[in-house]
Design a protein around this nucleic acid. Sequence first.
DNA 1: TTGTACGCGTTATCAT
DNA 2: ATGATAACGCGTACAA
Lengths: 335, 335
Amino acid sequence: MNIQKVAQAAGVSVATVSRTFNFPDKVSATTRAKVEAAAARLQYVPNASARSLRTQNTRTIGVLLPTLNNPVFTECLQGIAETAAERGFSIMPFTTAYTLDQELEAVKKLLGFGVEGVILVVSDPKHSPALELLQSTNIPYVLAYNWDPDHPCVSVNNQLAFSEIVAFLADLGHQHIAMVSGQRHASDRAQQRYEGFVKGIEQARLPLLPLIEVPFIDNAVEAIAQALQKERTATALVCSNDLMAIRAIRAAHLCGYQVPRDMSVTGFDGVRLGQDLTPSLTSIAQPNADIGRHSLELLIQHLTQRAPLHAKASLLLTHQLQPAESSAPPFIPHD
Amino acid sequence: MNIQKVAQAAGVSVATVSRTFNFPDKVSATTRAKVEAAAARLQYVPNASARSLRTQNTRTIGVLLPTLNNPVFTECLQGIAETAAERGFSIMPFTTAYTLDQELEAVKKLLGFGVEGVILVVSDPKHSPALELLQSTNIPYVLAYNWDPDHPCVSVNNQLAFSEIVAFLADLGHQHIAMVSGQRHASDRAQQRYEGFVKGIEQARLPLLPLIEVPFIDNAVEAIAQALQKERTATALVCSNDLMAIRAIRAAHLCGYQVPRDMSVTGFDGVRLGQDLTPSLTSIAQPNADIGRHSLELLIQHLTQRAPLHAKASLLLTHQLQPAESSAPPFIPHD
DNA sequence: TTGTACGCGTTATCAT
DNA sequence: ATGATAACGCGTACAA
C-alpha cells in the first residue's frame, strides 16, 4: 500500500495525497474528504523510510542506557517514551552493559539509522569513544545522569546530594558511617558520589571509614555481608544507589542487624519502589522521569528552534532528601 | 556522506561500494581494501532509510509494552534488546499504559516505520483493535505474556501456576487465603490467575474469600490495608504480581501484622529484586528475559526461514514456584 | 570482477 | 487548488 494506490483510488495525484496528510488546509475540503476516505479504506500508512529519505529526518531519537535492570534507567526511559509519543517522535533504545564497545556499536547503528538526536548515559564522558564519534557528526545529543562541563547534560548535583545525606545521618547522631558503592571508577556518578561522601564526612568531622566497594551487583548481598563482618563500628551505611541499598539492608539482616534499629541504610535515586518497601527507603530522590523528559525536550528545542545545544544548555535538576524508615538515630545499648 | 562520495574517493562505482559492504567476497581483495579505507576515512555509515526503502526491510522490530514501570516488562525488554543486538536487529518500543487507543496508535506508527515484526503485550487478545490491525497486514507478530488459542504467544501457564501457589500455602496449613489483584477484567493474565486461584482453593477444599481488587496500583498500599480491616480471617495473601505483593507486605505491616509470622504474602512474576528483599519474596518465577528472547527468536525464525507463525507456534515456558521468606506456616497463638 | 541505470515511496518545486 | 516530476541513497539486474 502506497501513496500511488491511494491517489488512484481517490482519483487525484500523489501530490494531493501528500498534501492532504502534511498540509490539510492546502487542499479543498471535498478532495480532502475523498483522499481521507480512500486512505482509510486502504488502511494506508505513510512509509517512514521513504519520508525520511526525502526529508532527511526520521523523527527518531536514539537512546543509550547501561541496562534496563535498574529502575532508575527504566523510569527515565518511561519519561522519554511518554514525551516522545506526545511530540510525535519514536525512540530507538540500546543497552550498553556499561561497556565502551557496546556504547560505540550502538552509536554507529544509530547514525546509520539517521536518528535526529541521541540521549545517552555513558560511563565516563571524559573517555568515551561513543561520545567522540557522536561529536564528530553534527547530530545533537544530551547526556543524562552524567555531568561534565564540556557537554550538554541533564542531571542532579551528585556530590552535593551525597554530602547532604551524610549530614542527615550525622545529625541523627551517627558517628560511624560507611559508604557502599559499585566500582568507583566505573562511572562519573560513582566518583562524584564518593567525593560527596568524603566531603560530608569531613564537614561532620567524623572518621572516614574504608569504602565498601562491590564489584558485581548480582552478588552484592554476600559481598556487603562479608564487609560487615570486618567493619563492626559502623551504625549507618550510605549506598551509592537504591538497588545497592536494598541489598545492603538484606546483608545487614543476614548479619543479625535490625534496620534501622541497629543499622541505618540509605540509598540514592529515589526509585518509586523504595517508598513501598518495609522499611521504606531513605534516599536522595532524583526526578528520573523528568531527567528523561528534559533531555528529550532539550533535543527537540534544538531541532525545531535551532536552540543552542552546548554545555551551557545543561540542566541541573533539584534532588530531594527523602527521609524514610530505613534510617533512625543510632541505638544506644544500656549495659 | 553517501555511497556516491565513497565510490568517488575510492575510485570505483557505487555498485562496488555496495557490494563491498553486502557481499565482501564478491569483490577483489585489492578493491575491497580501497573501498574500506575510503569508507573509514569518510566515516561512512550506510543510510538505513534508503536501504529499507530499497530492500523493503528495516531489520527493526516493534515492541509494545503496557509500561516500563513494572520490572516484569523491563526484564523482558532487556531480553529482547540483548537478543536483537546479537542478531543485528534494532527495536522500537512503545508503551500503551494499558489503553486500547495507545495500543492502536503505536501499531500504526510501527506499520509506517516498516518494522519487520512486532512483539506485543496487549490487555486482552480477544478484544484488541491493535491486534486486529496487525492481523490485517501480513506482518508477523508474537504476543508475550498473553495466552490465546488464536495467536502465536510466548507465556507461562498462569492458571496452573496460580493454583500451585495456593496449594503450596494450603500445604503449609493455611485455611484462609485471600487473593489480591489489580482490576481482574483489565487483562487476560489477571483473569487467568484468578481462575487459578479459584481452582486451587476448590482443590484444597478451602473457603473462597472475596477477591481484594485494587483499581490503581499507585495507592495499592492504602487499598489493601483497608481491605485487611474487613478481612480478619485471612492468614495468607496471594497477589497477582510481585509489585502488588510488595505493597501487600507493607499494607500488612501497617495493619500490625508481621510477615510471614502473622501473614504470608506471595507474588507472581519472579522479578529479580524479590530475592533481595527482606523478607525475600515467595513467588512464581516466570523467565521474563527468556519470554522476550523467545518471542524475538520466533519472529526471526519466521523472517529468515519462513517458519510458520500461527497459534501452533506458541511457546509455553516453564514457571517455577520460588519459596522464600515471605511465606510460612500460619501462626497458632497459644492463649 | 566491475560499472550503468532503474526503482523503492515520499516530499517539494514548479507549472498549470 | 491541483498535477507532473525530480531527487533523497541504496541495492540489484543486466551489461561489459
